[in-house]
Amino acid sequence: MFTRVEPGSASLSGGNVLDFEGSPVPFRSGDSVAAALLAAGVSPLRETPVDQSPRAPYCMMGVCFECLVEIDGRQNQQSCLTRACPGMIIKRQHGARTLR
């Protein structure tokens, strides 16, 4: 769905790799988590609590909240507003957040 304008600007051989559901996802320094996941072809990012319909980032600027994921154990994080960091653990959200 997406490709880098400069090929090779994100690769698994560099240090910039995060973990999505157990798979390594490379990113370019400065990427948001949402951009890194879309670049890796990840879709959907969540299923809604209301009707379990699949959702993926829509606005990429913090308005729509469709890009919610779990980041390093914290649920309901706006992945378009969060910068990707090496070693981040990202998980898909299924339905409502759980009480912990």
Partner: peptide
Amino acid sequence: WTLPGVMTVGALQIMLKDAGLRPCG
């Protein structure tokens, strides 16, 4: 419009500016 694979034009432009990503296909 709620389906994955539907975004806004602004969102795609943000991805271009912020991550150097362009759509393919």
